[in-house]
Computed example of a mutant assay.
Amino acid sequence: MSRVLTVFGGSGQGRTSGAERMAWRTTSALARRGHQVATLTDAPPPDDLRTAHCPVFRSVAELLSARPWPRPDVVHAYDVALPRAVAQAHELARRWNASFVLTPASTPDVWPDRDLGAALCREARVVYTLTQAETAALEAMGVSGTRVRALPQAPDLVGTPDPDAFRTRRELSGDLVLFLGRRIASKGYQVLLDAAPRVWQHLPDTLFVFAGPVGDAQAARAFRGPLDARVVDVGLLPDQEKHDALAACSVLCLPTSADVFPLVFAEAWACGKPVVTGRFPGVGEVVRDGVDGIVTDARPAAVADALLRLLTDGTARRTLGTAGLRRVRAEMSWDQVVRAVERGYPSSVPSP
């Protein structure tokens, strides 16, 4: 068993990103499987992991003072969209002569420093990727393909879902189209807002529920109002209510144009819900168009057409949602994720 230090930054605003959740869940699973694990992060854990059985340090100074072991075997960093934490992990790995491994967890399109991100990926002895398209993009940046390991995705849901409680609490009825994610331009929140009137022309009672943090000033203005009463902004949801919302919706719609593998897609499928997504590199590996979701252009008219196809055809909706649920049960679990991570740790790390 290995001594593992996981390192990742926090996104702030009281939220936990998909990359952070991946890091927390993998860390917890590694500890359960007998590895000696510690975490360096300023990110809050998911609600049910506040008593995780591994030490958590909030700064490098705190970590160096505590020294949970003489040195780690592996320093595992997450999310190049927050490069400061990844750079800290790289420096700590050098300091301790440990294996530096990295899960980029986000598309280069959202990296704040693409050159630094590419350099950190090239320095990693193992890079974990979620799709072949992500692998190809990193290889184009000079990352050796011999160092890449494929990583599955898995849903991160807490508790038993209660869709009726979500509807009652929010006084919602009828079909719900759910947007769940960070409200930034590349995630397509504005596309969905602009698609809503086209849907209402045919299905005037459809509600559009937006959950997740406001990511920039433009989004803040968009949701400051005035909004149509059929646009419901529920803000940041606790983990249990997020699960309830996914179970309550008719369709999850994230018309993203820049992503790797949104965690929320796996979560929607785990609730038996179909997804509508925009096009991004590798989207065909993530959403099987016409099987567990619909892939369409991130334009209001195209998104509205996709939503109308599903909202007017309950059988198609259930068929796609059921296919997604079967896929999650067969291919997407944290046990599968952590075993893939373990296979990349020291014994199988290629030499620089």
Rank of each mutant, 00 (worst) to 15 (best):
S2D: 15
R3M: 09
V7Q: 03
V7D: 01
G9N: 02
S11C: 15
G12E: 06
G18D: 00
A19P: 00
T26S: 14
T26Q: 10
G34M: 10
D42S: 08
T51H: 14
A52K: 02
F57W: 03
F57K: 03
V60Q: 10
S65Q: 15
A66F: 09
R71W: 14
P72H: 09
D73L: 06
V74Q: 08
V74G: 07
V75Q: 01
V75F: 05
H76N: 02
A77E: 02
A81C: 08
R94P: 07
N97E: 13
A98F: 13
D109S: 14
D109L: 15
V110H: 03
W111L: 10
P112E: 07
L116G: 05
G117F: 03
L120I: 05
R125S: 15
V126R: 11
Y128G: 05
L130G: 10
T131F: 09
Q132R: 15
A133F: 06
E134F: 07
A137F: 09
L138K: 01
E139C: 11
V143C: 03
T146R: 13
A150D: 12
A150K: 15
A150L: 11
Q153W: 09
P155M: 00
L157P: 01
P161N: 07
D164M: 12
A165G: 13
F166C: 06
R167Y: 05
T168N: 12
T168V: 12
R169A: 14
R170T: 13
L178P: 00
L180R: 09
L193Y: 02
V199R: 02
Q201A: 12
H202I: 11
D205W: 04
D205E: 15
T206Y: 08
L207R: 15
V214N: 04
D228M: 06
A229P: 13
V231N: 06
V234C: 01
V234F: 01
P238N: 05
D239K: 04
E241P: 02
E241G: 03
K242H: 07
D244F: 08
V251I: 13
L254Y: 01
T256C: 03
S257K: 13
A268F: 01
A270Q: 07
G272L: 09
G272M: 06
V275A: 12
G278H: 00
R279H: 10
R279Y: 08
V283E: 01
G284L: 12
G284P: 04
D289I: 00
G290S: 02
G293Q: 01
A301P: 10
A301L: 13
V303K: 00
D305Q: 11
D305M: 09
D313Y: 10
G314M: 10
G314Y: 09
A316P: 00
R317V: 06
T319E: 14
L325Q: 12
R329Y: 12
E331K: 15
M332N: 08
D335P: 01
D335A: 14
Q336S: 11
E342D: 05
Y345N: 05
S347L: 14
